[in-house]
């Protein structure tokens, strides 16, 4: 359990931001932390949709329950946080 810096690239926001998370955080927690700095500040909320985390350039999000340490992300690596319809998110969560 340790502080871990990432670079957050939130869908439809305009800028990369420093994101402090914990190595034990799940991807859902990472997405929520990223949203804190974007959603409701410069990005409109999308009630009912789920936020997913993926590596920059990847089309496949990490499983929602995967932790930062399990993901293999490097410090300050750029993650993309994208919206997903609930039905797709459920499928991804089971992966």
């Amino acid at each position: 359990m340790a502080l871990f810096p990432l670079t957050s690239n939130f869908e439809e926001d305009f800028v990369l931001q420093l994101l402090a998370v914990d190595t034990d955080h799940t991807m859902d927690q990472v997405a929520a932390a990223a949203a804190h700095h974007s959603v409701g500040r410069r990005v409109a909320d999308r009630p009912g949709q789920v936020m997913r985390v993926r590596r920059q350039g990847s089309t496949d999000p990490f499983p929602r329950s995967m932790t930062v340490i399990e993901s293999g992300l490097a410090p300050m690596e750029c993650i993309e946080v994208v919206w997903e319809q609930p039905v797709l998110a459920a499928a991804g969560g089971a992966a």
Binding site: F14, V15, L16, L18, V43, Q56
Partner: peptide
């Protein structure tokens, strides 16, 4: 997050045409 060359925030077009990347 700022660029290690120009030292300015890394940014580009937001919204549905979202193009930001590192």
């Amino acid at each position: 997050v700022v660029c290690n060359m120009c030292q300015l925030p890394i940014n580009t077009t937001p919204g549905p045409a979202w193009q930001v990347r590192d």
